Amino acid sequence: MRKILQDRSFRLSILLTLIFFGTGITFLLLGLADYSWILFVLLPVVLGISIGALPDHKWAMRGAVLAAVIALFFLLAAGLSGFVCVLMTLPFIIPLMFLGSVLTHLANRYKELKNVDNLPVLLLPLIPFLIAAPAEHMVKKDKEEVVSVQTVQVFAYTPEQVYETIKSVDTLQGEKPWLMYLDLPVPYKCVLEKEEVGGRRTCYFTGGNLSRGDFGGGTIEEKIVELQKAKVLRMDVTEYNLIGRKWLGFREAAYYFDAVGPDSCKLTRITTYTSQLTPRVYWEPLEKLGIRQEHDYVFANLASDLLHRYGKKPGIGE
């Protein structure tokens, strides 16, 4: 271990990684960068280019991976991301760093960046990020991806019974989906102040069950914009505060109640949200998975509440 720590390439790779990723985190804190491909793709690649220029490539990459994990967990400490997001970032951050190091070896025309350990020279690849991140932020300002997620389930209760049970929830309990055991926000209760258009509804969340801390709590404030008892409950989100999810926004929450036969209800839950995360091809499926697990947890609790309140066995969801 002492020999490893004395290796200059190993030490420099740690320093470079902390400088590169530290710059990215600082740009996020200052509002100069977005949660985008510039941060998640370009930054790891240019870091890898610098790492690949170090003489001892093996120990340089090991030091870079170690420092990358440390730097990403700084996002947690700064409240800029949640544990799940950090975990999902690693699978493509590390390969992109490796890709950048490979590019250094293959690009013979950049001989001045090969097998050097001069820190100012090794910092040169950071320049594209310093230029691209603020430029992208200015171009994308106020532009967010709007996405809707829908979940449908049939309950063996009337629409009136389902509506009365879901409109205001005292305490949600039950088996949590697997993401909630990491740090996906866990719905705790929803309080409806006035049952009318314009009325306020507040949903409270607790964090995950990580022994290292509660990273995922917060609240979502909603205002009723459409209300037909046992038919439609649609709300605009007026304020939200979910810890570690600065990149995520919520637009609308809606419930639709449709009669199925004489005594069953098809409940449709739609969440409309915004996201700054790119590339979308990677992040959107993960976002939808998280929201669907939130829906599933609420529906499971609803089934339990209906059974407790009305004494009938819930129907099978579809």
Score class of each variant (00 low, 15 high):
3 K>P: 10
5 L>V: 12
5 L>A: 03
7 D>V: 00
8 R>Q: 15
9 S>P: 13
12 L>E: 06
17 T>K: 01
22 G>N: 04
34 D>P: 04
36 S>W: 04
39 L>C: 02
41 V>Y: 01
45 V>A: 09
45 V>T: 07
49 I>H: 09
50 S>I: 00
53 A>P: 04
60 A>N: 12
61 M>P: 08
62 R>L: 08
62 R>G: 13
65 V>I: 14
66 L>I: 13
66 L>V: 11
68 A>W: 00
68 A>C: 00
68 A>F: 01
69 V>P: 03
70 I>H: 00
72 L>W: 08
74 F>T: 09
74 F>E: 14
74 F>V: 13
75 L>A: 03
75 L>Y: 02
79 G>S: 06
80 L>P: 04
82 G>N: 14
82 G>L: 04
82 G>T: 13
82 G>P: 12
89 T>V: 04
90 L>E: 02
90 L>G: 01
94 I>W: 03
103 L>G: 12
107 A>M: 11
107 A>Q: 00
109 R>D: 10
110 Y>P: 04
112 E>Y: 01
113 L>G: 09
114 K>P: 01
115 N>W: 10
115 N>I: 07
120 P>C: 12
121 V>D: 01
122 L>I: 08
126 L>T: 09
138 M>E: 12
138 M>P: 00
139 V>R: 07
141 K>F: 12
145 E>R: 10
152 V>M: 07
153 Q>K: 09
153 Q>C: 01
154 V>K: 11
154 V>M: 11
157 Y>F: 15
158 T>R: 02
159 P>N: 10
162 V>W: 11
166 I>V: 07
167 K>V: 11
171 T>M: 13
176 K>S: 06
177 P>E: 00
181 Y>F: 08
181 Y>D: 13
185 P>D: 10
186 V>Y: 13
187 P>C: 08
196 E>R: 06
198 G>S: 11
200 R>H: 03
203 C>G: 10
207 G>A: 07
207 G>L: 05
209 N>E: 15
209 N>G: 12
210 L>V: 02
217 G>S: 15
219 T>C: 03
220 I>F: 10
225 V>K: 10
231 K>C: 04
231 K>N: 11
232 V>G: 06
236 D>E: 12
238 T>M: 08
243 I>S: 11
251 R>Q: 10
254 A>I: 06
255 Y>V: 07
255 Y>L: 13
262 P>G: 10
262 P>V: 11
263 D>Y: 07
267 L>C: 12
267 L>T: 10
268 T>N: 02
274 T>I: 09
276 Q>Y: 01
279 P>N: 08
279 P>M: 14
284 E>R: 03
284 E>I: 00
284 E>H: 01
284 E>D: 13
286 L>H: 13
290 G>W: 02
290 G>Y: 01
291 I>R: 09
295 H>S: 15
296 D>P: 00
298 V>T: 11
298 V>D: 14
300 A>W: 00
301 N>E: 02
302 L>N: 10
302 L>Q: 11
307 L>K: 14
309 R>I: 09
310 Y>L: 14
312 K>Q: 15
313 K>V: 15
316 I>Q: 06
316 I>G: 07
317 G>R: 05
318 E>T: 00
318 E>S: 08
